[in-house]
């Protein structure tokens, strides 16, 4: 376990995404309501930067080939063939923490 503080919930606008580096690992932090998700910043398909993606508060769309995911559980929607990986997170006293023990990435054989 390597729990690191990400940021305060209040630092993130609702329905928004923010690129951050936690313990040297690049992540994308996504807020929808009171839920904060921390994911690797790239698309599982061609590793396109998801910071350039489109997020409507519920569905994240990669603009390269329109792969889409339900951000709540990372499940693929529409044309997407693979789920999003997510870092384990928890909230305490308005702060978000993520377990960044190992950098999550998308490999050819995953």
């Amino acid at each position: 376990m390597n729990w690191k503080k990400v940021c305060a919930v209040s630092e993130l606008d609702d329905k928004s995404m923010k690129s951050m580096t936690i313990d040297g690992i690049e992540v994308l932090v996504i807020r929808s309501g009171n839920t904060i998700n921390v994911i690797p910043p790239s698309c599982p398909h061609m590793l396109t930067a998801l910071t350039e993606g489109i997020f409507d508060g519920c569905v994240l769309t990669c603009t390269k080939h329109l792969w889409q995911w339900n951000i709540e559980d990372g499940t693929p929607l529409g044309q997407a063939e693979a789920p999003l990986l997510k870092y384990e997170t928890r909230q305490e006293a308005g702060e978000v923490y993520a377990n960044v023990e190992k950098e999550l990435s998308y490999e050819y054989d995953c």
């Binding site: 350039e52 489109i54 409507d56 769309t61 603009t63 329109l66 889409q68 529409g78 044309q79």
Partner: peptide
């Protein structure tokens, strides 16, 4: 293309499968 895509997904709520 990206600006049009954003408009269609976020404003028009068009399904990505129709783009």
């Amino acid at each position: 293309v990206e600006a049009a895509l954003k408009m269609l997904l976020l404003e028009a709520r068009l399904s990505a499968t129709e783009i």
